[in-house]
Structures are given as C-alpha cells and as structure tokens.
C-alpha cells in the first residue's frame, strides 16, 4: 500500500521526493482519477497541499513568480500586466470544485495536451523553476513539455514556481470545448500581442489539443511579426498564415473531434484573437 507523506515545507518535500518511487500530489484532481483506473497505485505520494510557500504570487525582477500550488480559483483572479490569458485560461478550467483544487503546477506536470493553462503560459514565455536535493534549474516551459503525460521533470524534482514575465502588450485565451463547463479542450489558443505604430512588434501564439503537447506556432508568428492590421484582410496573406499555422500544429482525430475540425478552429481562433487584441491595443 502506498505511503502518503505530507510535509510542511518545500525543503522537506524535496527530501521525500528524493526517495525511490515517490511522486508529488498537488490537488489530486488528476491523480485520483488515474488511481481509480489503476494507475500510479504502487507509488508513494508526497502531498504538496500544506506548502504555503508554493501558494504565493510575487513580483520579482525577472517577472511574476507564481507558486506551483496556486490553484485556478486564485489564478483566475490574477492581474499580471499583459497576462490576461492566464486568468482567462484558469477561468475555463473544469468547474468551481476543480478550480478550488486543481493547481497551475499540477496542470503543467500532468502534461495533458489539452491542459488549459499551458498554452496561456507558453504564450507568455513562462519558465518553470525545478528544485531537487541536488539544486535548482529554470527551464522554458516550451522545453519542459515533452509529450502526452511526459515532461522534463527529473526523478526527485519538485516544480516550485512558474515565472511569468511581465509584458507591455495584451493577451487573450480562447477555448473550444464540447460544453460550457467541465469540458476538455478540443482546441485552445492563447495569443500575446504587442504593437507599435500599427505594426506587430511582438507576437506569441500557443495552442492546446492540436499536438502531443501544447505548442508555440513559430511559423505563424514569424509571418505576423512586422505586419499591419490590414494585412489580415488580404486573402493571400491569410492563406499563407493558415498554411504556416497548419505546419505548426499536428492535430489528430480522437473521441472529441477530428483533425480537420481542429485545424479549421485553430485558424479561425487565431483570426478572432488577433482582431480582439488589435482592438485592445488600439484602445490603449
């Protein structure tokens, strides 16, 4: 039978995680569904629930440090400049009961391709801080996500914080689900945009549920950088943008939606999100 340790400090938690066959348990919203279906039953768990230090959000020189145990009920109320997409994504997670327990760190480490917070954090160029008994390291989120259920988390490591750089632009998150609550994304997208003199100076697009992990749309971003709003109405540009975006993503058919639908929605979402953000940028 599993052991269940419940440390009070991150230091202690890291010590427990250094033991063989242990895994962290944040809010349990994913782990306990997995356990019901026979997964991870042979593991020992290290509860992170009492680690108050991981539930803080603090502003530092390199950005906002969001504790990995910050739950979505808190995250949906975050007002980090330029990071509206994170709060919006948090608000789309499950339902109140899930948002009260599910954590940003748990969402990342579970590594579902449909995780709501991951595309938002990717579009914000977030990094994750990982600590273990042998030290700490900071990894860009885009490098951290490795595949469905797979991350770069090494045995013994604890994700303590997510570092979200503050931005002067604006961001937005959209989600296509099959119902309005308790829905797993069929396609999700976060876009961060900065403009100057009517031209895009910085753009980051990240998508969920359209690849083995949430992905950045680097090709589409490259096309968009430097363009003006009116370019978006040009059919030729739109066709090139769509082609680029479809190269950035690799959706599949599954029980929720087809590959083609995900492709169509990904592009329509991008056009929609750009127009929303452009309006915001102009108002500012």
């Amino acid at each position: 039978m599993s052991m269940f340790y419940q440390p009070l400090t991150a230091e202690e938690a890291i010590a427990y995680l250094a033991r063989e066959n242990t895994m962290a348990c944040a809010g349990g919203t994913d782990l306990y569904v997995n356990r019901k279906h026979g997964k991870f039953l042979d593991k020992d768990y290290v509860s992170l629930d009492k680690l108050q230090e991981l539930k803080q959000v603090t502003k530092k020189a390199d950005g906002w440090h969001v504790g990995s145990m910050v739950n979505f009920a808190c995250a949906e109320k975050l007002e980090i400049p330029g990071a509206a997409c994170l709060a919006m994504a948090a608000a789309e997670v499950g339902a109140p009961q899930i948002r009260n327990r599910g954590t940003v760190g748990g969402n990342i480490v579970s590594a579902s391709p449909a995780a709501d917070s991951v595309p938002a954090l990717m579009a914000l160029d977030a990094k994750v801080m990982l600590r273990s008994v042998s030290g700490e390291r900071v990894v860009p989120l885009t490098d951290f996500m490795k595949g469905p259920g797979k991350t770069d988390l090494k045995p013994g490591e604890l994700m303590t914080e997510i570092i979200v750089p503050e931005g002067k632009g604006s961001s937005v998150f959209s989600k296509a689900g099959k119902r309005n609550a308790l829905a797993i994304a069929v396609c999700s997208q976060a876009v961060y945009l900065e403009t100057e003199n009517g031209k895009i100076t910085e753009i980051r697009v990240a998508l969920g549920s359209v690849a083995p992990t949430a992905v950045r749309a680097y090709r589409a971003e490259a096309l968009l950088k430097g363009t003006e709003e009116k370019a978006l109405t040009c059919a030729e540009f739109k066709a090139a943008l769509k082609a680029a975006l479809l190269e950035d993503i690799s959706p599949i058919d599954d029980v929720r939606a087809t590959k083609e639908y995900r492709q169509t929605v990904a592009f329509r979402m991008l056009m929609h999100n750009l127009s929303v953000l452009w309006k915001e940028e102009t108002v500012c």
């Binding site: 349990g28 306990y32 899930i98 308790l182």
Partner: peptide
Amino acid sequence: GDCGACTILVNGKSVNSCIYPAIQ
C-alpha cells in the same frame, strides 16, 4: 470529479470529495 454529487466544503471552499485525498 465529473458530476459534483459529492461536493462538500473544506475550509469553506467547494470540492469534489470523491477525488480529494483525505490526508490533505
């Protein structure tokens, strides 16, 4: 955790008790 029939309040917050580790 998909139906909410097991909802209770823990320290005033609603949670699904069916996927809540008792130790926490």
